[in-house]
Write a protein that binds this DNA or RNA. Structure first.
Length: 467
RNA sequence: GUCCCCAUCGUCUAGCCUGGCCCAGGACACCGGCCUUUCACGCCGGCGACAGGGGUUCAAAUCCCCUUGGGGACGCCA
């Protein structure tokens, strides 16, 4: 088998959205699995809508996701001569012709057809006129009048379309720029694309593109149309369904590994496995297990997967991802063992990096702000004794490991005749200001003796001041 | 409307190709419970689906047909 080359061809008319990212991912995983190449192609032939900001946003998103490419980026806007060259060939070989029908006439025809519940199609008025190139003329493809086109889709199976359904579509605009189907095919040919893996909203374009391949005398690539991603209301995913841009998930504290896991798993499966690392996916991904039906984007499941990935990751690998969020909260954290320990305590209770940064706050601020409710409930006069005794016990410790701290608590329990819960909760509030936190022994261990004692003393003062 | 695609719990899916192991398994969500120094994690249990109707067959979620439902495409957008 010849080399596998796929492509990801976004049009830079906006950010990289969830659906596009998924298509990119399928292509990327496919080539990673089989050792092929991925071509990145920017389809910017629509000068009106294409922007540099979009191009940058797409690169940024791809970079964050960790999707790299082997060839490109190629910009269609810079390849206009390649397209005109091929269009000229098509005209010479009788596969295309100039058309001077006005846009008004075309629109009129469309409206009329729709009014009569007919499929709107060009009536091929200029097909056999042998028109020469003139200002304002477009080039149309001379599509077959009979027979049918069969897409041998590796995902959907054979799809048969009657050629009478396909009209003489425009391949070159009156300004000389190529239309999507033309540019796409020429690029796929010149870039030696072996597999075209794209959203199934492109199925209707495929017969047209196949005709172009055939007219140019080139073998067809393998086509695979992946089902679309729909919103919760089953309509095409759009902004009103919430976060659509890939990078919004970065801002919401998601790890790209979770997004990738979620997106691939939406429409693809490997038995009952739900959790996949990147390497896992590369190892197991093939086109064989892609489903045929559209899937609904479920933010809840993505969140759950994000929590799983945070839980499973090594604390160190999380540094660069959480630190920006910590910084935003005014936490000036340093990479190292201390941060590693902190993250470890937060991993099982953080669904996002935003939550993790919030959970980390108390570690970095000795001036604990007591939340009203827990303070009222636990920082009461009867907490003074256990707090005082604990402070003394901690001061007396010669070793300050978690087990030593636990022993200290046991002695406090004996001396005060209180259950652990009665001691731990006031201490927790004293140390964190909150009623919920990681385990009390581990946070004492991480905070260190000086900080803990000082916080406890401040809490005692707080209680006394209240009385 | 025309053409095309699709159809298993609310959602993502396993099973379907190569009928029997499926009165349908897993995951998210939800509801109970356990664990426990809090919150989580974890663990256990519950809820919950083969769209409908015809065939074929000893046997159908699995094969065939029809209906219904949903989606997509119908641009000098990509």
């Amino acid at each position: 088998m010849s080399e596998i080359i796929t492509r990801f061809p976004p049009s830079p008319t906006g950010y990289l959205h969830i659906g596009g990212a998924r298509t990119a991912l399928f292509n990327w995983l496919f080539v990673k699995h089989f050792g092929g190449k991925l071509v990145l192609r920017i389809e910017d032939t629509d000068a009106e809508r294409s922007t540099q900001e979009s191009v940058d946003a797409i690169f940024d998103a791809l970079d964050w996701l960790g999707i790299d490419w082997d060839d490109g980026p190629h910009y269609q806007s810079k390849r206009l001569d390649v397209y005109t060259e091929h269009v000229n060939k098509l005209i010479e070989s009788g596969h295309a012709y100039y058309c001077t029908c006005t846009q008004e006439r075309l629109e009129e025809m469309r409206n009329k057809a729709k009014a009569q519940n007919q499929n709107p199609m060009y009536d091929r008025q200029c097909r056999d006129k042998g028109l020469e190139k003139t200002d304002g003329a477009v080039v149309r493809f001379k599509s077959p009048l009979d027979g049918n086109s069969v897409i041998k889709d590796v995902i959907k199976g054979n799809i048969v379309i009657n050629n009478t359904e396909i009209d003489d579509f425009i391949i070159l605009r009156s300004d000389g720029s190529p239309m999507y189907n033309l540019a796409c095919v020429i690029d796929d040919i010149t870039m030696n694309i072996s597999h075209v893996i794209r959203g199934d909203d492109h199925i209707s374009n495929t017969p047209k593109q196949m005709m172009l391949f055939t007219a140019l005398g080139v073998d067809l690539p393998v086509f695979g149309h992946v089902p679309m991603v729909l919103g919760p209301d089953k309509s095409r995913l759009s902004k009103r369904h919430g976060a659509m841009s890939v990078t919004e998930y970065r801002e919401m504290g998601y790890t790209p590994d979770a997004l990738i896991n979620y997106l691939v798993r939406l429409g693809w499966s490997h038995g009952d496995q739900e959790f996949f690392t990147r390497d896992d996916l590369i190892e197991k991904f093939t086109l064989d297990n892609i489903g045929k039906s559209a899937g609904i984007f479920n933010p809840g499941k993505l969140l759950a997967l994000n929590a799983d990935h945070i839980k499973e990751a090594s604390p160190k690998s999380l540094f660069p991802q959480v630190m920006p969020f910590m910084k935003e909260k005014g936490i000036d954290a340093e990479e190292g063992e201390h941060l590693e320990n902190i993250i470890e305590t937060l991993q099982p209770r953080s669904k996002t990096f935003i939550e993790m940064a919030e959970g980390a706050e108390f570690y970095y601020n000795d001036e604990v702000v007591f939340e009203e409710k827990p303070a009222k409930k636990f920082l009461k006069p009867n907490a003074i004794e256990p707090l005082t005794v604990l402070a003394e016990e901690l001061k007396a410790l010669t070793q300050f490991a978690e087990s030593d701290i636990e022993d200290a608590f046991k002695r406090v329990m004996e001396k005060t005749e209180l259950k652990l819960g009665k001691i731990a909760q006031p201490v927790r509030v004293a140390l964190t200001g909150k009623a919920a936190s990681p385990g009390i022994f581990e946070i004492i261990d991480i905070l260190g003796r000086d900080s803990v004692v000082s916080r406890i003393e401040k809490a005692i003062k707080f209680i006394n001041a209240k009385v």
